[in-house]
Design a protein around this nucleic acid. Structure first.
Length: 800
DNA sequence: CCCTTACGTGTTTTT
DNA sequence: CACGTAAGGG
């Protein structure tokens, strides 16, 4: 059997991979960097390399680690390897940086100050910061989430080898206090945030030589996916994992301590800089792990040629990149369609209509992508209306729902009785008469007894004369404590959860506190959650016997569940048999591919996001997002924009994304659904997506629109480019593709969030635009002096 | 202490 | 619009 697997794999290796791919798989020297364009088969290369090491080189899978950025990417790689290995080989560890560090923390719990730690998600972090802000009266100008973000930025960027984490705080004075308080509260609660998971392991590797040596004795091969998305800290972590102890210092020559190191990346797909990722790590990798063999893979197997060509043209507008030549032999025609609708709802309807024109077997391989989660809602409604099954990937995450987090908090306290965040969350949920006043008392008591766990603390509060809790409150607290003393630690978290839900009458709490529809939803979520715990329990029990299990950790099942859930956004679910459309953000789509990709909301302010209009760096990242989205498509790419959209409950006019106008007109057909009768559009959809797949939209079918398309005065491309697009004479506003060309600024429409300059008011940001007359607009803009409404002729656009 | 109502305020992207 | 926070009455 193993011989068959080996034969099959080698047949694949020598017949199905191209030369650069194969050389990357077979590479024997120590460090290697693979520069792989979109769709060039980089996941394939990584998984094949792992398979090659295990199957042909007889490397122990346990000595191989593959690090990815998202759980999804990891899942995909695992699946492919399981397929190759047919369960005759063990799987190596494949997972995110965070989950690998968590695993290391758990397997080395004895080295930790508190082995039973909780993991804080963004929500918990915010709660904690809010409570600290109260103390410092820091409310007005910053929000808790901004502080959380800043702290994370600091942790990801500022950590330098060998320096203490807290050594060079660069926060404003008050921020520094908040940060330090945050860190100490976290320590007291025996809790770690996501960034800590990585920093803790980095600390261990750099300060504990025995730990490092035993790590390197065990782990001999490391592979990293999406290197362009690594942060400073993650790069340092890799150095610490892979280099000789002496060479962790910057001055000493670097010597690889492991047998092979392989990183894959593509600078054009760097879309996580907001989370501390830096493309510069691609170069740093070449320096720090020198000598590095560089392999470039530039053949794209995924996309039909016009799609790739269009994506190449778009990304070519980025200045901060090295040009590359991604090519495809999959020639085709008419693969890109631009849908122009009148409103967001209209867009949603158009998308549903289009999907209904696709043959059934194509349905499951359609993805709808958008920039932000909230954009999914109108589309969802329309899909439901048209009875099209869909699946949202990573939306409002299951484990972040209020009702689930409440129950998780109860469970977390079982494992970690120091978890202050969880205690504060549920001490009065459901309400048991322990409100704001009690919370105050609790915090005071906690400060007096910093080392108490919650049982000791609550006991102290109700029994000590200084505790200050009497009467009804005392009874309520005692009842709460009784709940926990009634819990038995066992190997069945589902029973523990069951007990809690019953004991606190959680379902009736939900029914009493939410209106029927909402309550019903929440009750169902709770039931699903309880089911997920059971599923986990069984999986866990099996994996202790199963040899595909990566590492055995002797641990409490509940603890394992909580840790798994902390890093997981999706709920644990069995694959559903129905074919469903996939919906997800552009970020979530990275690394995936679909037959048909529908990108919705391609408008200024959405993509590019209004938050990214101020710097060129941010704008270029938005363009990379556009690029990532486009290159997900294999056969058909639909770009969709709407003329107006409801934002904050108000209609606002939208402008087609500049990225759309960066696509050469000859590669894209446009259908303006305000002009084209729906029956005609449907007829075209059926031919295009359902039939010949290269159908072209015939302008001649359009009575009344026989005239040659009018050049778009706003579009830099359109002046003389031959075009088969159907554009009504009343041309839609588009942004020039090169924003820095401000010569034509008088003809360019004024856009919300544009930065402008006024002689008297200084620099401001546009919040509203109204037409004044043929040549002028009333612009409402936010200056440092406040909101002002001025005529556009007194304003000057500022571009960066 | 809890519930209701009235504002007002603000939406990237993920581990 | 839709959420979360601030203020007031029961």
């Amino acid at each position: 059997m193993i011989d068959t697997i080996k034969k099959d794999f080698n047949h694949f290796l020598y017949n199905s991979l191209n030369d650069p791919q194969r050389s990357a798989v077979l590479h024997k020297e120590k460090a290697q960097q693979i520069i792989a364009g979109a769709g060039s088969g980089k996941t394939r290369v990584i998984t094949s390399r792992i398979a090659h090491l295990v199957i042909n080189e007889n490397i122990n899978p346990r000595s191989i680690v593959a690090l990815t950025f998202t759980n999804k990417a990891a899942g995909e790689m695992k699946e492919r390897l399981i397929h190759t290995f047919q369960s005759h080989y063990k799987l190596p560890f494949i997972g995110t940086f965070h989950s690998y560090c968590l695993l290391l923390l758990r397997t080395n719990a004895t080295l930790l100050a508190s082995p039973n730690f909780s993991i804080l998600d963004a929500d918990d972090q915010e709660d904690l910061i809010k409570s600290i802000m109260k103390k410092y009266a820091l409310a007005k100008h910053v929000t808790a989430s901004q502080i959380v973000y800043q702290i994370s930025q600091y942790k990801n960027k500022s950590f330098v080898n060998d320096k203490s984490i807290k050594a060079d705080l660069q926060f404003a004075p008050l921020m520094k206090d908040v940060y330090l308080e945050y860190e100490s509260e976290k320590a007291r609660s025996h809790a770690l945030d996501f960034d800590d998971l990585i920093l803790q392991i980095l600390q261990l590797l750099t300060t504990n030589e025995a730990f490092k040596l035993s790590f390197q004795k065990k782990i001999r091969h490391i592979l990293v996916d999406e290197y362009q998305d690594t942060s400073h800290v993650q790069h340092s972590l890799l150095r610490a994992m892979a280099l000789e102890p002496a060479s962790t210092k910057d001055s000493a020559p670097n010597k690889l301590a492991i047998d092979s190191l392989c990183a894959v990346g593509d600078e054009d797909q760097s879309i996580y800089s907001w989370r501390g990722a830096t493309v510069a790590n691609m170069l740093k990798f070449q320096q720090d792990f020198a000598p590095v063999t560089i392999v470039k893979i530039e053949q794209n197997y995924r996309s039909a040629q016009p799609i790739l060509e269009a994506a190449n043209q778009v990304i070519a507008n980025n200045r901060l990149r090295n040009p590359k030549n991604l090519w495809s032999t999959r020639s085709a025609k008419n693969r890109i369609l631009h849908l122009y609708s009148t409103s967001g709802d209209h867009e949603a309807k158009a998308i549903s209509t289009l999907i209904k024109c696709a043959p059934k077997k194509k349905r499951s391989d359609i993805a709808i992508l958008y920039r932000t989660h909230f954009q999914s809602r109108s589309i969802e409604e329309s899909l439901i209306h048209h009875a099209i099954p869909y699946k949202i990937v990573g939306g409002i995450r299951f484990y972040e729902r209020k009702e689930i987090k409440d129950l998780l908090a109860y469970l977390r306290l079982v494992i970690n009785p120091y978890d202050k965040i969880s205690l504060l969350r549920i001490i009065n949920t459901p309400s048991r008469g322990l409100g704001a006043k009690f919370e105050e008392q609790l915090l005071i008591a906690w400060n007096r007894n910093p080392l108490f766990d919650f049982i000791q603390l609550l006991t102290w509060m109700t029994t000590d004369p200084d505790g200050g809790v009497t009467g009804n409150k005392k009874i309520a607290v005692q009842d709460f404590l009784k709940l926990y003393t009634g819990l038995e630690q066992n190997q069945h978290p589902s029973k523990t959860l069951d007990f809690i839900v019953n004991e606190i009458a959680y379902l009736s709490y939900l029914n009493d506190n939410y209106d029927p529809r909402e309550a019903q939803d929440k009750v169902e979520n709770v039931q699903e959650f309880m089911q997920a715990v059971i599923v986990f329990e069984q999986k866990h029990a099996n994996s202790l016997l199963d040899k595909t299990n990566t590492v055995e950790i002797n641990t409490n099942v509940l603890e394992a569940f909580l840790h798994e859930v902390a890093l997981l956004q999706e709920k644990i679910e069995e694959d559903s048999p129905t074919e469903r459309i996939h919906m997800m953000t552009l970020h979530a789509a990275k690394g995936l591919e679909f037959d048909t990709v529908i990108m919705s909301g391609l408008e200024e302010g959405l993509l590019p996001s209004s938050k990214s209009l101020n710097t060129n760096e941010a704008l270029e990242e938005e363009r990379r997002l556009m690029y990532v989205g486009m290159t997900r498509a294999k056969e058909h790419l639909i770009l969709s924009s709407a003329q107006s959209r409801v934002t904050f409950g108000q209609f606002s006019d939208q402008v087609i994304s500049r990225f759309v106008s960066e696509i050469p007109k000859g590669l894209m057909q446009t259908i303006d659904l305000d002009e084209v009768p729906i029956a005609q559009a449907i007829k075209f959809f059926e031919q295009w997506i359902g039939g010949t797949s290269s159908a072209s939209f015939q302008p001649s079918q359009l009575p009344g629109h026989m005239t040659a398309p009018t050049a778009n005065p706003y579009s830099a491309h359109s002046a003389s480019a031959p075009s088969k697009t159907v554009r009504p004479a009343t041309s839609r506003p588009t942004v020039p593709s090169k924003p820095s060309v401000s010569k034509a600024s008088s003809s360019v429409p004024w856009i919300k969030n544009q930065t402008v300059h006024h002689e008297k008011f200084g620099t401001g940001i546009i919040v509203e635009v109204q037409r004044a007359d043929d040549s002028d607009f009333y612009i409402t803009a936010l200056f440092s002096a406040g909101k002002k409404k001025v005529l556009s002729r007194f304003l000057e656009k500022k571009s960066f």
